[in-house]
Design a protein around this nucleic acid. Structure first.
Length: 805
RNA sequence: GGGCGUUUAGCUCAGUUGGUUAGAGCACUUGCCUUACAAGCAAGGGGUCAUAGGUUCGAGUCCUAUAACGCCCACCA
């Protein structure tokens, strides 16, 4: 028997454990078609927020849907625990920087810390009813992931897709590492635009404007536009820079914007992307004036040792004192910052490992074209990113915790020595190089101490999922995987890099479909951020307050790819829906006590109506889900469900209660209908509400170990006429109820006499369901007239007013 | 500056390929304890579908332009 009230706190724990104990979601290859999901391994940075629930739930619903469609769902789970987020977390918890702790000790701390937080994540996902196999989650720093990551790297190196080269790269002097373009975040800051006077060696004064005067010691030349009437005569002359007392050439380049600043620009190596371009184009000298941790190098006179911002202030002070500062303007502009720490990035020249992006943009676009993107416009975003990318992918990081490069260098000639594939995983810092002697005769090898970009590993989750390179692998089964799902913020990283890797490792697309979800916003246009602390609710708190089913109702609402604002009303709506599902199930259970399921086709008219309505609804429901629109599918289902409760149940209840009046067969027809439709409704709802549907299923049906192992079988009735006339009948019932309502009467008030005018077809329908119709409205006498057209109307209604007292 | 998305009832949003009086929930109004549910039920008020043009027998839906808001990217001199 179903409880009077549904207690989610008790039931959700119960089923959570049941699913785990009975391995309901375990993947075993069999005859069925495999549907595989490549879900993002969350970054373990200690902070679980509502966005995790939102985006992961949507993918989870697809897993449940595909399972219900009879597919063998491969839905693994993992954690991305290497890289900067973990390191920053540990540094924060320890109150010390990595280099102060020491490499080995620090890496161990990272491993332990991420493992600890992973347990929190696992708890959360289990609690939210996730059907992934979370107990067997992979870690991106585990030996097996490291092995696959290194193997993928070596394959790329062998194919010439990655190279080791001294080249300018983006540098974060907070995190002390190089980073990739995809890790940049634009920020608007207020700064000063400084107008400074320089002179040519023949004595002419000209003005340049700069926001970064601290770069002046790195100046290598001055540029003007060759079309600039005001300045073009300067071309070829030599500029004297006051204060630092240096001389540099004045060159021409048409990339200089005449109307920006003063139209004269200094080129420093390096202040920005354009400086790098000019440096390469004109073969300019290199002046690296910043230390790795964001200070001016000691060799710079007067400014050596100062932090960047200190140097900025001091140099302006010096220009002012010397009389070369013309003016300062306040300026708001965009700067590139490192997304992990928010600090402005610099450029540096170091030997780094890069993966070739620029030569294969067309291939990456082509693979993008072979993948179906949901929603479609996210594909455009991907293309935009690929078309606009300017750098090869720098994958070396001067950090500690992560996958080591399987690489040594010959001490004498510098030749790169790659690990042997059979030796993987390796750590060159502790393992020996695979050869004793280099071609050059040298026997000493220097280990690479950089580690790989975290995306270098997380971008190969398809390979990790298929146990790439292992003996019993899933390579054939998972190539390509069915679905990749993530939020739109990591299209340019996770999705893009995965495509890059898949292109190089396999020469084909990594997945058939990509599903992109939106973001949870704190308010309209305001992202949830830790610093603002504007997240309205914490995930565990929400799950405690509402239960997983209702949280999932919220997460599954809305259109795919659309950002969502946290909204109490949606929770309330979900709560009501859950409550209704419970109550109607109780009602149905009550009337199934003597029910025996058997073949039956003698359905009452009204029963055919609701069965037909269901069939119609389920077609749309399936169509939405096939397009990964679970929110719209849920909406559609919900709409049917309320109609089922408020109209159909209200009609059929009289027949169910009083067989002596309606007959046993008509009652059985009603029983069969509710038995069949509730089963199907529970299945459909189980995608969104795995807990309550399981509870009801186990009480009422239980033909499998779990509702989540059942299969949706579409109905094949054809009740089109019944649907049409039934809808009209319900409309007449509603009109008659309106009469009662308008007279402030109970719906139980009898109707002494009802005269309606309807078409032949509708009259036939009402006559076929005359008992149901009269019982629903408490009609004593009914008169049906023929209407000349297809319209229907109530001609006369007499209410029994005496009943009121 | 380039691209994308959004704009429908007071609020939050649906509206599948253009087809009769534009829908839901919340809020509001008026009733109803009706043998599943008062966390409920019934009925009702409320919208010139951002604006301006265009295509069409017919436009919330298609096309063009404009505006506001949001997102991604570029712009750091």
């Amino acid at each position: 028997m179903l409880d009077k009230k549904y207690d989610f706190k008790e039931k959700e724990i119960k089923w959570m454990d049941y699913w785990q104990e009975n391995k309901i979601y375990e993947f075993k290859p069999d005859q069925r078609e495999v549907y595989s999901i490549d879900t993002p391994p969350p970054t373990v940075n200690g902070k679980i927020h509502i966005g995790h629930i939102f985006s992961y739930s949507q993918a989870e619903m697809i897993a449940r849907y595909k399972r219900l469609r009879g597919m063998n769902v491969f839905y693994p789970f993992g954690f991305d625990d290497n890289g900067l987020p973990s390191e920053r977390l540990v540094e924060k918890e320890q109150g010390k920087k990595a280099h102060e702790i020491g490499r080995e000790e620090f890496s161990k701390l990272c491993y332990d810390t991420t493992t600890k937080y992973e347990e929190e994540f696992k708890k959360l996902f289990r609690r939210a009813g996730f059907s992934a196999d979370i107990t067997n989650a992979y870690k991106t720093v585990s030996p097996s992931s490291t092995k696959i990551s290194q193997l993928s790297f070596i394959e790329l190196a062998e194919k010439g897709a990655c190279y080791h080269k001294e080249s300018p790269a983006l540098w974060c002097n907070e995190c002390l590492t190089s980073i990739a373009q995809a890790e940049l975040e634009t920020k608007t800051i207020k700064t000063l635009f400084n107008y400074l006077n320089y002179e040519t060696t023949d004595g002419e004064t000209f003005t340049i404007a700069t926001t970064r005067p601290e770069l002046i010691p790195a100046i290598v030349c001055v540029f003007v536009n060759p079309e600039d009437e005001k300045h073009k005569h300067l071309i070829g002359k030599t500029a004297h820079i006051p204060v630092i007392d240096e001389e540099v050439p004045i060159l021409a380049d048409d990339k200089v914007a005449i109307d920006k600043g003063t139209g004269v620009v200094m080129c420093c190596t390096f202040g920005d992307q354009t400086d790098i371009e000019w440096w390469k184009k004109y073969n300019l000298p290199l002046k690296n004036i910043f230390t790795e941790d964001g200070r001016i190098v000691d060799s710079v006179k007067n400014y050596g040792g100062l932090k960047i911002k200190e140097a900025r202030a001091k140099i302006i002070e010096d220009f002012k004192e010397a009389g070369y500062l013309v003016k300062q303007e306040e300026l708001e502009h965009e700067v590139q910052t490192h997304e992990r720490c928010g600090k402005e990035v610099e450029y540096t020249v170091m030997k780094q490992w890069f993966i070739d992006i620029m030569n294969h943009k067309k291939d990456f676009i082509e693979i993008g074209n072979q993948i179906k993107w949901y929603p479609d416009h996210m594909h455009i975003r991907y293309n935009e990113w690929v078309e606009n990318i300017m750098w090869d992918w720098c994958i070396s990081r001067q950090r500690y915790f992560g996958v080591p490069f399987p690489v040594w260098y010959c001490k004498n000639c510098g030749k790169v020595v790659l690990a042997r594939k059979e030796d993987l995983p390796v750590n060159p810092l502790t393992d020996k190089a695979p050869i004793d002697k280099c071609e050059c005769g040298c026997t000493e090898f220097i280990p690479e101490k950089d580690i790989m970009d975290t995306w270098q590993t997380s971008s190969i989750t398809p390979l990790i999922n298929m146990k790439y390179g292992e003996k019993d692998n899933y390579e054939e089964m998972l190539k390509p995987m069915s679905l990749r799902c993530n939020a739109h913020d990591i299209i340019r990283t996770w999705d893009f890099y995965s495509i890059v890797k898949s292109f190089y490792n396999f020469g084909e697309k990594p997945w058939e479909n990509v599903m992109i979800s939106g973001f949870v916003m704190a308010n309209k246009g305001e992202k949830i951020s830790k610093s603002k602390n504007n997240s309205k609710m914490e995930p565990f708190e929400l799950l405690e307050t509402y239960g997983a089913d209702i949280v999932r109702y919220w997460a599954g609402s809305g259109k795919l790819g659309t950002d969502i604002v946290f909204n109490d009303e949606t929770f309330l709506r979900g709560k009501k829906l859950i409550n209704k599902i419970w109550n109607v199930s109780k009602f149905i259970e009550m009337h199934l006590a003597d029910y025996q399921d058997k073949e039956f086709n003698d359905f009452e008219y009204v029963d055919k109506w609701i069965i037909g309505k269901f069939e119609e609804m389920e077609k749309g429901f399936i169509k939405y889900l096939d397009n990964y629109e679970m929110g719209l599918a849920l909406n559609h289902l919900e709409k049917f469900f309320w109609n089922f409760c408020d109209n159909y149940i209200e009609i059929v209840k009289h027949r169910l209660y009083r067989p002596e009046e309606f007959g046993d067969t008509p009652r059985y027809s009603g029983q069969k209908t509710v038995y069949m439709l509730l089963y199907k409704l529970l299945q459909d709802f189980s995608i969104f509400f795995p807990f309550i549907t399981e509870e009801i299923y186990q009480e009422l049906y239980k033909d499998k170990a779990s509702i989540h192992l059942t299969e949706i079988k579409e109905l094949t009735y054809d009740f089109k006429d019944e649907v049409k006339n039934g809808d009209a009948m319900v409309d007449i019932i509603s009109q008659a109820r309106g009469e009662k309502s308008n007279n402030n009467l109970s719906l139980k008030t009898p109707i002494k006499n009802l005269v309606i005018s309807v078409s032949d077809a509708l009259a036939d329908a009402i006559n076929k369901s005359i008992k149901d119709f009269k019982a629903t409205l408490f009609i004593d006498n009914l008169e049906i007239n023929n209407s000349s057209d297809n319209n229907y109307s109530i001609e006369k209604i007499e209410l029994d007013l005496e009943e009121k007292e």
